[in-house]
Design a protein around this nucleic acid. Structure first.
Lengths: 122, 122
DNA sequence: TAATTACTTAGGTCTTCACTTAAGTAATGA
DNA sequence: TCATTACTTAAGTGAAGACCTAAGTAATTA
């Protein structure tokens, strides 16, 4: 239906959805300072461990975070590529928006004409 | 609890949530090329008009889009500031992630020690 | 003035989300 | 070996999302 253009697997839907929750953004903030275990990640939040692990699953599904387990400890780290994919999409929109001025004059004359018809009835 | 830092009212939750849906991103793509009416915005999607208007409401709540009505036509336009707020947050995480190397050596020695204990039992 | 157009409003449904508690299980430490 | 620690799994709940149809309303056009 629509072009997706995800750079390497994780669609933008998942990345933006992952970032739409403050808890998950908090986790990304923490991980952007360096890797952490699940318990370390959970510590700042007043929430059950399973809840934190569910957030983590969302982050992993989006590609923002990866993790592996050594012994009984799962260590999580950020993968900045998913973040870049989101940023790239945003930048492309801003770039097009910056070029929109080409069409602004055209739009304004339409608006003006419409307004005139609306207020003065020709 | 967490610092929000939204530039002018719309929290990042709303911006990222708005961008997490392909239909809404499609609308933003369209609007980044210039303003459009509700019907113009709805045209590419196989969806009822009310559904489109609900997506629009989400976009407006996030600050990504503004609209005003002249006569019976509502014209929508993008507000790039909300997009910049999202981009800023992403950039800050990437910046910190880039600086994380300071802590990498430290982390690796911990990992190494843990692995040794795990596989060889001291 | 009557039809058409461009939305709006008001329900309703089915799914996904963000949690919870209660049990697990598998590694470690004493 | 036995308790602890560090998660995991399972099941459930209440709220939010993403649609829909049907029925307005207000502005234009014929």
């Amino acid at each position: 239906m629509q072009t997706q253009g995800a750079s390497h697997g994780a669609p933008l839907d998942l990345v933006f959805h992952a970032l739409s929750d403050a808890t998950r953004r908090g986790m990304v903030e923490r991980l952007s300072r360096g890797p952490a275990s699940v318990s370390e990640l959970a510590e700042p939040f007043a929430m059950s461990l399973p809840a934190v692990v569910q957030h983590l699953a969302v982050l992993e599904a989006s590609g923002l975070v990866r993790s592996d387990k050594v012994g009984r400890v799962r260590t999580c780290r950020m993968d900045e590529r998913a973040l870049s994919a989101a940023e790239d999409w945003i930048n492309e929109r801003k770039r097009l928006w910056a070029g929109r001025l080409d069409r602004l004059g055209e739009f304004l004359s339409k608006q003006d004409a419409a307004t005139k018809r609306g207020t003065r009835k020709k």
